[in-house]
Nucleic acid binder design. Sequence first.
DNA 1: CTTGACCTTCCAGTGACTAGAACCTCCATG
DNA 2: CATGGAGGTTCTAGTCACTGGAAGGTCAAG
Lengths: 132, 132
Amino acid sequence: MNIGEVAQKTGLPAKTIRYYEDIGLVTAERRPNGYRDYGETEIHNLRFVQRARGLGFSVADCRDLLSLYRDRHRSSSDVRALAQARLREVDDKIAELQGLRATLDHLVNACAGDDRPDCPILDDLAGDPNAT
Amino acid sequence: MNIGEVAQKTGLPAKTIRYYEDIGLVTAERRPNGYRDYGETEIHNLRFVQRARGLGFSVADCRDLLSLYRDRHRSSSDVRALAQARLREVDDKIAELQGLRATLDHLVNACAGDDRPDCPILDDLAGDPNAT
DNA sequence: CTTGACCTTCCAGTGACTAGAACCTCCATG
DNA sequence: CATGGAGGTTCTAGTCACTGGAAGGTCAAG
């Protein structure tokens, strides 16, 4: 199967699929003409990576997850540890963003948003202690 | 004031301050010896950028915010629009992460995390419709 | 035989820094 | 006055995960 068809089937851009080969994540056979040749296994692995990336795992994590996936003697605890670490990252990020959200929301509500120049948002960014 | 002192006062790494000058965000005078020379205005602007970046505004947004800040005839609505756009971004990101969080949490809970190889997390990533 | 779609590689750019190398300048001390 | 070390300067290159584009090879249809 050519890379274009794989791209269509998986939804991954061909560029990305080549990139994954470049970094040794998912490699393909070559045909005599030099074209990459994909089988079901490769498609499967690409989709695996795609899903893992969709959950926000780094490419390095994807590499680890793939190798655990291929290892019949793995311990599920290793996989769980990766997922749990990712979960913690996501939780941290959510907390951070919720903090930002509160501040931004506060500022947006404090600002009249009209033609006049007075702006509590800028006052706050400028470090004005009386702002907002 | 030398860049080192500014770095200490603001908490921004000297490298970052030089970078901001490179991209024309906050520039400094030069002394005859070639050293950058910072006054209160520059420190103020750097802190402004620092706070805006802390709220997740892009450097491009910071540029716009700074120029609005300097413009005595601005309309606060322009500032508010930027903040509101940023708020929307943050909201979208939070929603996305909460979706991920739910999935990850579900997977982590479904996985025994022991010495055995059976792993619903990998099954899910592999696209197994019976997973989890 | 040509056209056009598809494939190949390689180089460069993204955002916002950050690390490191090579070199210059200043100040304090021996 | 020499020197050592702290701090300053520029420049290049690396980060992450792609993405865009150029130059050229391959293939099937008309």
